[in-house]
Design a protein around this nucleic acid. Sequence first.
DNA 1: CCTGTTTATCGTCAGTGCGACGACTAGGAT
DNA 2: ATCCTAGTCGTCGCACTGACGATAAACAGG
Lengths: 263, 263
Amino acid sequence: MPFEPSVQAPFAVAVDLVVLAVHRSALRTLVVRRGESPDRGRWALPGGFVGAQEDLEAAAARELKEKTGLSVHVAGNGDAAHLEQLATYGDPGRDPRTRVVSVAHLVLVSGLGESHESYTGVVRGSVLGDAAGGEPEVRWAPVDELLSADSEMHRRSSPSLLAFDHDRILAEGVDRARAKIEYSSLATAFCPPEFTVGELRRVYEAVWGVALDPRNFHRKVTGTPGFLVPTGGTTSRQGGRPAQLFRAGGATLLNPPMLRPEA
Amino acid sequence: MPFEPSVQAPFAVAVDLVVLAVHRSALRTLVVRRGESPDRGRWALPGGFVGAQEDLEAAAARELKEKTGLSVHVAGNGDAAHLEQLATYGDPGRDPRTRVVSVAHLVLVSGLGESHESYTGVVRGSVLGDAAGGEPEVRWAPVDELLSADSEMHRRSSPSLLAFDHDRILAEGVDRARAKIEYSSLATAFCPPEFTVGELRRVYEAVWGVALDPRNFHRKVTGTPGFLVPTGGTTSRQGGRPAQLFRAGGATLLNPPMLRPEA
DNA sequence: CCTGTTTATCGTCAGTGCGACGACTAGGAT
DNA sequence: ATCCTAGTCGTCGCACTGACGATAAACAGG
């Protein structure tokens, strides 16, 4: 009994965003407090419905722009964020209202400005007033909190912190980021245009949640051709001995990869 | 001007399948000849629309069952095929009829039975009669042909062999498979339940399109704990000295990975 | 039976890359 | 001056890989 294609359900198609940044040695993600009816008041990943003539990637970029003001150069090493498709979630019943198929996207933004004020400012400064009138509540939540709450949910079967199936989406987005900085130069997307080896190392440490040996890390990244190009300048914004500044090089794939400590 | 969610277009949601197998030292994919109006007569990836209350993965498994008769153990090392989500394609205009968002899936099936008859039989034997009445034309096409035709398309701007944007979907599916057998034990999904080291090596050679040193390959796979489990039996179905038979072990991630020759 | 062919399996050896860690450098703070 | 912090250069041993020799166990054909 083959499925009959002429009977088609009314599908809604949405995009959800896992926006990741490293701030104060923590991997953080952007969450918004829901003002709408299902899961009202819970935190959720930013997202929205796809327009009738809108490309999926364009919808994701538009949502990002609305929520953070950031532009994306898709797969481009420009001044903007990195955006890529993550996975699609379409369980019937994941949204109690109607059948919603949501295409999740992963966004990596530069977040090394350590001042908390200017950091949240990148969100505050550009959120357009939503239909509800007031500014939506937006937060850079440490991923650890959200995910450990998730595993705690498994133990005590308490409801998760995030609405819908957004825990799972976040977990898979974080997994993807953790895996991808291993074999690509994507970690530089978390850094400002110019950065030091130490700053890049702190990105890896925050994303992986491990400590890396500064000497071996330095040898590895400076020894991989095309990964980093020195700009000539130095900075001492971290204290200690001034460090060389680098830009991201042309290489996107790291071969051999950056090894993540196992344990 | 934020996008207004209340205005929602009529989306159709479909699944497309990149079904890969290794047969006669070639990586092949399952294509069906279209009998419907757009691109009628062209080859296309198998696929179909998602049911109103149907999960995406369930829809993919159903389509696979209808087209090949194969069952899937999702992420299970059982007797059946491997299925995983690949990516979602939603460009407006990718289907001239209506807005179709298609969730592509990757399926790896065991195909080492070298008899061509029994091999196509796995398709023939179980295709349910489609609405059109006759049996749909189904073919295991070597991936090289389809993709080289694709690159030829770029040179001479001739229309591609596959309908819609299925060249791109196939290319990304093949890329995923090529990348994934590098750091996971997924290559065993191309093999029957019991197989020899040489058979596994020929899978790698077919998927990557390279020649591997039999001695180093043997050392590598037998030296990785949890990758292969000897069953005790031997076989000489390949001619030459009889080889030990193995089953896939519990390990799913290979660490260190199987290295793909660069050049 | 002997020989060539095919495939499987075991070893050897040199080169590469990584983890562990010592040593030195160049700034700021006290 | 002395500590403290962070960056940078070296060294050593180990693990793994690539190249390749050698042996083993089947079959085909003379």
